[in-house]
């Protein structure tokens, strides 16, 4: 865990929010609340939420009331799949793909979606995978558009 003194000190009314990807720890901060794209819809989490482990779908993570960037509004990240562990006011997102909104390449995402739509899938598994990928690409575009 990337325990820096500033990030690990508990702050009143806030939760610690961490995003880890296979390559690095992308985010480690404190925020008032965070909205996560669970596999079946969004879920908001604030301090005192009951502990759970959940599967994530594709969509955006919204961070509001961040301690390090007061008055800057909501920070958005796009995540695709993975897990979240919520426990004792620490929210940890473990995902293979997480992209901050400002680094998101909308043109590339659109091209990818088009490529997916024009590809042909045969067999139940391939069709399922394609639908999932299309859904993820659309979610990515929605995040980029905001």
């Amino acid at each position: 865990m990337a325990d820096t003194t500033t990030a690990s000190t508990p702050r009143a009314g806030m939760i610690r929010f961490i995003v880890v990807t296979p390559e690095t720890t992308l985010v480690d901060t404190h925020a008032k609340s965070v909205t996560l794209p669970l596999f079946d819809g969004s879920r908001g989490i604030a301090r005192g939420h009951s502990p759970f482990i959940g599967r994530l779908g594709a969509g955006e993570v919204r961070l509001s009331g961040e301690a390090d960037r007061p008055g800057e509004g909501v920070r958005r990240l796009f995540v695709q799949g993975g897990f979240v562990e919520v426990g004792h006011d620490v929210v940890t997102v473990v995902t293979q793909r997480a992209i901050p909104q400002e680094k998101f390449d909308a043109a590339h995402a659109r091209a990818e979606l088009e490529k997916l739509l024009s590809s042909r899938a045969t067999g139940d598994e391939a069709i399922g995978a394609k639908l999932e990928a299309v859904e993820a690409a659309r979610a990515a575009l929605r995040t980029a558009a905001k």
Binding site: S50, I53, G54, R55, F83, V94
Partner: peptide
């Protein structure tokens, strides 16, 4: 033991092992 699982421990396991 306090953790809840969404959708279920089994389904998370299914995803987490490949990861």
């Amino acid at each position: 033991q306090e953790y809840d699982f969404y959708p279920s421990a089994g389904s998370i396991l299914e995803e987490i092992l490949p990861a």
